[in-house]
Design a protein around this nucleic acid. Structure first.
Lengths: 364, 364
DNA sequence: CGATGTCATGTCACCGATGTCATAGCCAAA
DNA sequence: TTTGGCTATGACATCGGTGACATGACATCG
């Protein structure tokens, strides 16, 4: 591969002049420039980033570590493949700022992380992002303080800058919107209880009810925790069966995610219950392949993983460009990202209930 | 960041000796080694790949270009996000061979590809992979002959090594299996006609029928091409309506992909047609979030995008390690990857038809 | 008219590793 | 004892760029 010296020789100038043409950092005569450009084209010259990097001490690289890319083939994670959307967002923001991304994955094994970080450090990445496959707490090996690190979709105990989905707000917005639409008996089928998202979203669910002055009925909340169990559909079936037999059954089922909602559609239809005429269904994630393709389309909360990725990237870029930034308190808090509620055909608007609502107000 | 000289000074040896400890390429005295290792640990020394690369001329990098990562936000591609699975496969194979991956995406704009390639070449990647979002023909800018290139999920006119899904075989296997299960009237709802996959799969469908001695009935094949149209569900609805009213209606609907099957489930159930009791449904892709979550679970063909990625990576690695490999004819042909049929509850086995089949044989 | 500034270009050292070659000590074979 | 081979180590050049500095030719200014 041709070097800057080859170009210089061919163009009959010094290597330094070729460098100037490349970087445009000092004036170069018109004829000289043209000669150099011709020589570069003729030789198919491509400058070496490695050599450039040695002097400038800037790599223009950022490292991305994720479990997203390669998972132990049989492990189906709870939520589909959200982390890939985060990667997408990161990539978008990085490309816009001229950074090149190196990517590696844990293959599901956290013990490989130190080695991956090591590899990136050898390449002198200017920053690192760790992407988790679902909202969780993590514990990463220490990285040199000189290399900024941002966590996406996860957080740790030592206050590493993080970007997280605002689960509480998302669920609250959805439930508030359901209440607005006239629903009063709102069932909530949660994801596994140990998940961070479950805690936050349940809080959001409760907050929305409280705000509307509606009671929190434990009979309407159940964990559809099928993790690791074979009979996922059966569990859901039983829960739905129980809910439908309540003396005052729910008019809407809020599902822990869109995938669960997909399952719920099947169950309801097998039982001859029509969506949304006889019961409404809502999801979470706005996993578009599901939410938009289902019939009727699914009302859900946009989790906006892409936005999480973009924000994480921006946060990292800020840390890279002003290392001095003494992490204002704000910077140290995790940044919360929330998406809008997507209102689609799976939920009825119930004017009837609105009348009931009005009545209540009058009685008040 | 500490350099090899800092380590050498601290350990009171020459830089070269530190290098020897690092690479283990020449004998080093026990005490010396320990002193060097202590110094490295104390300084948190991480060798610079850039410097190493300048001498060795080996980067240990491969570049991956895809439209997968960031898509024009509103463009929903036909098949979900298959290309991300390909990336997953590539990453898995690359990590196994010690290569580090750099990743970039076109953001849906092919005209950016030359620039991305240029960036990778500056980093002296040892190979490039281009991943397409669906099986298609592409035209990429020339890359230097010294940098091997592999196409994944696409091919070009000039015989660049490629790895492709074996669409014809996948569809044929599925249809053959349906015939084995007793189905004789097999409807096929295709993806848009201009897609490479559609042509190949339709051929596979026809081949399976021919092999079984069944007639090809054009009334059973229709393009559910909803690309760019708003009323996707309506189009499907109309097609299904027509099929169900045929004098001799199909007993199974083969869908162009799992997403279409998801839609078909909704339509059939809205019409009160039970799956699979009254009609069977099959998909394509084995998009697990859909295929395994649907109720009943969907019979489909595994497109094995991951395997395509792994093969593409292996092919590239082979080209890197033996550049001399004069691309045997075999090497120049696109490599076809096929996955198995996943037989699930959405298709009935129909012994009744088997009897009919036997009768035919006796009459023969 | 000399002092100063700007343009256009070149020289040389240096970034951080590693390859080549040299050297010194030691032990065994000739 | 000499020679050769092996171990352990260092000096120095080199990879391909860029930063610091120098230089010569003009133009501008007081």
């Amino acid at each position: 591969m041709a070097t800057i010296y080859d170009v210089a020789r061919l163009a009959k100038v010094s290597a330094k002049t070729v460098s100037r043409v490349l970087n445009g950092d000092a004036p170069v005569g018109r004829e000289t420039r043209e000669a150099v450009e011709a020589a570069m084209a003729q030789l198919g010259y491509v400058p070496s980033n490695a050599a450039r990097m040695m002097r400038s001490q800037k790599s223009g690289l950022v490292g991305l570590i994720t479990g997203a890319i390669s998972l132990p083939s049989e492990a189906l994670q709870p939520q589909g493949l959200p982390d890939l959307f985060i990667v997408q967002g990161i990539q978008r923001a990085m490309a816009a700022s001229g950074m090149t991304m190196m990517i590696a994955d844990t293959g599901g094994r956290l013990d490989r992380v130190p080695h991956l970080i090591q590899t990136f450090l050898r390449h002198r990445v200017e920053g690192l992002i760790y992407v988790a496959e679902f909202h969780q707490k993590v514990e990463l090996p220490r990285v040199p303080a000189t290399t900024p690190l941002v966590l996406a979709n996860c957080f740790d105990a030592i206050g590493t800058p993080a970007v997280l989905p605002d689960d509480a707000r998302g669920q609250r917005d959805l439930v508030s919107r359901l209440i607005e639409a006239g629903h009063r008996r709102i069932a909530y089928l949660t994801l596994p209880l140990h998940m961070v998202a479950t805690t936050l979203r349940t809080a959001g669910y409760a907050a929305a009810l409280a705000q509307a002055g509606l009671p929190y009925d434990p009979a309407l909340v159940d964990c559809a925790d099928y993790e690791g169990r074979e009979d996922e559909t059966q569990i859901l079936w039983d829960i739905i069966d129980r809910l439908l037999r309540l003396p005052d059954p729910p008019t809407v089922l809020c599902c822990g995610n869109d995938k669960m909602a997909l399952r719920v559609y099947g169950i309801l239809r097998s039982r001859g219950v029509k969506v949304p005429d006889e019961i409404s269904v809502a999801g979470y994630d706005n996993y578009r392949v599901i939410a938009e393709t289902l019939f009727p389309p699914l009302t859900t909360v946009d989790l906006s993983y892409t936005a999480i990725g973009v924000r994480a990237a921006q946060r990292l870029l800020a840390m890279i460009s002003e290392p001095a930034a003494a992490q204002s308190q704000e910077d140290c808090d995790p940044m919360l990202v929330s998406g809008p509620v997507y209102w689609r055909g799976s939920v009825t608007e119930r004017p009837a209930s609105k009348i009931a609502n009005l009545k209540l107000v009058r009685e008040d």
